[in-house]
């Protein structure tokens, strides 16, 4: 196997992994603060991808530009979902939360199926076949742009949590629910904001993903699983962990596709998950205990 090929595949995997990371970041933010596992995460991602397909088709804007309005729509959706439905379930047992979100996921997938049908959709950009050449590396432009956008979005999210008052309040909520209520934070609103932000992340990630793959409704559950795996591998609640694990999974998928078989990609991913769960259950970058 030529080393150039391996290097190219690794870089491609790394870049896709950053987009995975952004999607997983959304899940991690929601779990870290609201303590609810969003089992409809991947379905929200495909919903965003369809929105982007429609928006790009209507206006001709670049999918990466579409990430802004689509992220906005997903934010509102997430906000409303948390406020109207999930909030009542925050203190209920995990299995009821699970069924609630499975129901949401079933509805989302099948609404997409009703509206768009089972066939794959994609968007066309004029730089689709262009690439950068750096020495022996040949890197698709779409990957570079998508990854750059993902890093930018993740950076914006980090800045929001570190710099702004609302971001700090959300972190306070995550650390200490009771304490946050005591000092007068509106926890309900902050939870809804958080869910909205998580949804916006996965929405934006969906738009970037659209540069790399086609979208079909049935991919939703697979994306949900992928996001979980990344979050667990990175460490639940660790934001940098989610990005790093996204890269790890992206690269391992690409390598498995090259060295074993394309269909064995996710087998390697699951193997990584199982190993991490057994030997480092707090995740690669998570805190112990």
């Amino acid at each position: 196997m030529p080393i150039d090929l391996v290097a190219n595949v690794v870089v491609a995997g790394l870049l896709a992994g950053l987009v995975y990371g952004l999607a997983a970041l959304g899940l991690s933010v929601i779990f870290g603060v609201v303590r609810v596992v969003n089992f409809a995460h991947g379905e929200m991602m495909t919903a965003a991808m369809y929105l982007a397909v429609v928006l790009v088709g209507l206006t001709g804007i670049d999918p990466l530009v579409a990430a802004l309005p689509v992220g906005g729509v997903l934010f509102l959706f997430g906000y409303a979902l948390q406020r109207g439905l999930i909030n009542a379930f925050v203190t209920r047992p995990e299995h009821t939360q699970f069924i609630l979100l499975v129901a949401v996921a079933i509805i989302l997938v099948n609404v997409q199926l009703m509206v768009f049908g089972p066939n794959a959709r994609n968007v066309q950009v004029d730089y689709a076949l262009d690439s950068f050449e750096i020495g022996p590396l040949i890197i698709d432009k779409v990957r570079v742009y998508a990854a750059a956008a993902a890093v930018l979005a993740a950076g914006a999210l980090f800045a929001f949590f570190r710099r702004t008052l609302v971001g700090k309040s959300i972190r306070a909520c995550a650390d200490n629910y009771l304490g946050a209520q005591v000092v007068g934070l509106n926890v309900k609103r902050l939870y809804a904001l958080t869910f909205g932000l998580g949804a916006a992340c996965v929405g934006a990630a969906g738009c970037m993903m659209l540069l790399l793959v086609d979208v079909t409704p049935v991919q939703g559950p697979a994306y949900t699983l992928l996001a979980f795996i990344i979050v667990i591998v990175g460490g639940m609640g660790s934001l940098t962990g989610a990005l790093a694990a996204g890269v790890v999974i992206g690269m391992s998928e690409a390598l498995a596709g090259l060295l074993i078989a394309p269909s064995a990609k996710s087998m390697v991913t699951f193997a990584i998950l199982i190993l991490v769960l057994l030997f480092r259950p707090q995740g690669l970058l998570g805190r112990a205990g």
Partner: peptide, 22 residues
Amino acid sequence: ETPGVKQVFYGVCLLVVIVFLP
């Protein structure tokens, strides 16, 4: 005959049961 209608309805039923009879 639109694919998905059935499952959407099923999902809604599930949602209703879990919300009202947890």
